[in-house]
Design a protein around this nucleic acid. Structure first.
Length: 600
RNA sequence: GCGCCCGUAGCUCAGCUGGAUAGAGCACCGGCCUUCGAAGCCGGGUGUCGCAGGUUCGAAUCCUGCCGGGCGCACCA
């Protein structure tokens, strides 16, 4: 019986050398079983074609430098074969020959391989690859043999990557924008993990600055029985009702345990230090609960206060001064970020003596670098994009070898929430905003996650609560989950009819219908989709692919009965849908963090 | 004013980093359940890819300039 996700087998590849990375293939002439490839050519047909093509081109044109990643793509038209490449056209300039001639030379140099039936030259010089049907049939076997490892690769080579996301200050519950950040960051982390990176998920927050002062005075005011309607209410205070809960818990002497701290209230309404400690812990706990309900877990919490406590802030300032990139003016200490492509210089130490927020931010990123993260990704709201240039500039000014484009940023645009045809405004200070928790409670974790990663982060998003919570066909997440549940139902039915699946009896050569071929082709695309999504940080590619896969399955389901009387055919079909179920589960559970129900 | 992001079918959006005839879903109309789950399937049509130039064998994709929308532009975070 299908056991869901009880075991985790992972194919181990050896770490690619710089040479194999550079060429995308290794020196072993037959690529089929080379253990050094980051992408397994047995599971990843595109990688196989790329490898064979690069190999042939290198032989046909020994004097020409072949691009590191030769461009190979799936064809739209079956007449163009299964894969196509424009390599010959790309090389015309370097080789100083016409593209069709180059194409012919490459074809002549193609190594024999049983997966490729033939290669044709078409149009201006396209190379069209026609694969043997058995190559696709092997995909089915590979999916089932690999299980949850199907789609994983070792492109990352075990290198470390730090993904920082959410990073909300502990001044209130998470809102929908944080939700988008959480969903995108989490799926990104899953994609990198699936691509062989060693991923650390981190949440950074300010636990000591002006915002926390405001939080403290607001809770103190609540403790004193004030409400935002009172004349004495602090001007910059947070007005949200949730602070009344914080105050009540504080006065009741409660103990709160968040993921990264535990605090017991003293219940002393005049002790601002104690109120601060408690309020931060309380709101951190609330955020942790929301994130847990959303299926998001962090490896580490980084605190701004810790950067001051351990002297990193001070040390960073000293390093910048020593590097000669600072100056004093108008009573403040400035950093010459304009030397590194920022629009204007930035104040580090204010005239009144305190540091601007940007200094601990720099200290934090310097620490990330020193912790050995050659790759760091910051997922954050696009409204903070203005800080990118100055952080990078500050890191450059340290002169410690940090590359100019480090760290990477993935910015998500605003989410507008609609309910009953009206926009719901997000306003933390007003306290009348849609929280992540509201969404999870109303539309469910799965649908919320799905919608928030289904669009590319660059685009603004309208989150229609009514649509997302509708359990109707409008809702794509159900469509995909239903495909999974339907397959499970087929196997239950097979058992009931004493036609239990016998994989060894499957005659896969009978899977020749158009529906079957389309489904197999779609299955074979999965490793490419995952690799490309990770490489381009394109989270939306996964929901899109899974929709395609579910589509291919549902069409097949309606067109052909699986529980056929013929043993070889029946088991072949069951084998195919078993592989489909596996890929649906891999995508839903492992990449999107969404459930793959056996019944709905 | 300056910077970043977005502009693709009536609506919501894909589009594999420059390829061959630009694709889905929703909405609308019509068909399919004594047969593995109808949360499903099949059929029906739509585009000056915001506009104008440029780069080249070839542009929705790259460059420039406009138009429209969003977000930033503190000795706030």
């Amino acid at each position: 019986m299908y056991a869901g996700r009880s075991t985790w087998t992972r194919r181990i590849f050896c770490k690619p050398t710089s040479d194999t990375r550079k060429h995308g293939l290794c020196a072993v002439p037959t690529l089929d079983f080379c253990p050094c490839l980051p992408r397994d050519p047995r599971a990843d047909l595109k990688a196989l074609v790329q490898g064979l093509l690069a190999d042939a081109a290198a032989r046909a044109l020994p004097d020409i430098e072949i691009p590191a990643n030769v461009h190979v793509e799936r064809t739209k038209d079956a007449a163009h074969g299964d894969f196509a490449s424009n390599l010959a056209m790309q090389l015309t300039k370097a080789a100083r020959r016409n593209p069709r001639e180059i194409a012919q030379a490459i074809v002549d140099a193609m190594p024999a391989d049983d997966t490729i039936a033939r290669v044709e030259i078409a149009g201006p010089g396209f190379l069209n690859f026609f694969l043997n049907p058995n190559a696709f049939r092997r995909t089915i076997e590979t999916v089932l043999d690999s299980g949850s490892a199907y789609g994983r690769s070792d492109i990352g080579g075990g290198d470390k990557v730090l993904i920082e996301f959410v990073s909300a200050n502990p001044t209130g519950p998470l809102h929908v924008g944080h939700g988008r950040g959480a969903a995108v960051g989490d799926v990104l982390a899953r994609l990198y993990d699936a691509s062989g990176w060693s991923v650390t998920r981190e949440f950074y927050y300010n636990d000591a600055g002006v915002q926390i002062d405001n939080l403290t005075t607001s809770v103190a005011a609540r403790c004193a029985g004030l409400t935002p309607a009172d004349a004495d209410w602090p001007e910059a205070g947070y007005r949200g009702e949730y602070l009344a809960d914080v105050a009540a818990a504080y006065l009741a002497g409660e103990t709160v345990t968040a993921d990264d701290r535990e605090v017991t209230a003293t219940a002393d309404a005049t002790d601002h230090g104690a109120i601060r400690e408690f309020a931060v812990a309380y709101l951190r706990r609330e955020q942790d609960e929301d994130l847990r309900a959303f299926g998001v877990v962090f490896d580490n919490y980084a605190l701004e206060s810790a950067l001051y406590a351990d002297g990193r802030v001070e040390a960073t300032v000293e390093a910048l001064v020593a590097a000669g990139h600072t100056y004093e003016a108008d009573g403040a200490l400035w950093l010459k970020t304009t030397d590194y492509d920022d629009d204007k210089d930035r104040v580090m130490r204010k005239a009144e003596g305190g540091y601007t927020y940007f200094v601990p931010d720099l200290a934090y990123h310097r620490a990330k670098w020193e912790r050995g993260f050659g790759r760091a990704i910051n997922e954050q709201g696009a409204d903070h994009h203005g800080t990118i240039a100055r952080v990078r500039a500050g890191l450059q000014a340290l002169d410690i070898g940090i590359p100019a484009g480090w760290p990477d940023y993935i910015l998500h645009q605003m989410v507008t929430v609609m309910r009953a045809g009206e926009e719901v405004k997000l306003s933390k200070r007003a306290g009348s905003y849609v929280t992540l928790r509201d969404l999870i409670d109303e539309v469910g974790r799965d649908a919320t996650r799905y919608f928030l990663v289904a669009r590319k982060p660059d685009s603004q998003q309208t989150f229609d609560i009514d649509l997302a919570r509708s359990q109707s066909e409008d809702n794509p997440v159900y469509y995909i989950q239903y495909a999974h549940a339907r397959i499970c139902a087929v196997f239950r039915q097979a058992d009931e009819q004493d036609l239990a699946w016998q994989r060894d009896d499957a005659d896969l050569t009978q899977l020749t219908s158009e529906h079957e071929q389309r489904l197999i082709t779609t299955l074979s695309r999965y490793p490419e989709v995952v690799a490309a999504a990770a490489e381009e940080s394109a989270v939306q590619a996964i929901p899109h692919y899974l929709r395609d896969l579910a589509d291919a399955f549902h069409s097949y389901y309606n067109a052909q009965k699986f529980l056929d009387g013929d043993t070889g055919l029946r088991n072949a079909r069951l084998t195919l849908v078993a592989a489909t179920r596996q890929v649906l589960a891999n995508g839903l559970i492992d990449l999107l963090g969404i459930s793959a129900p056996e019944r709905m």
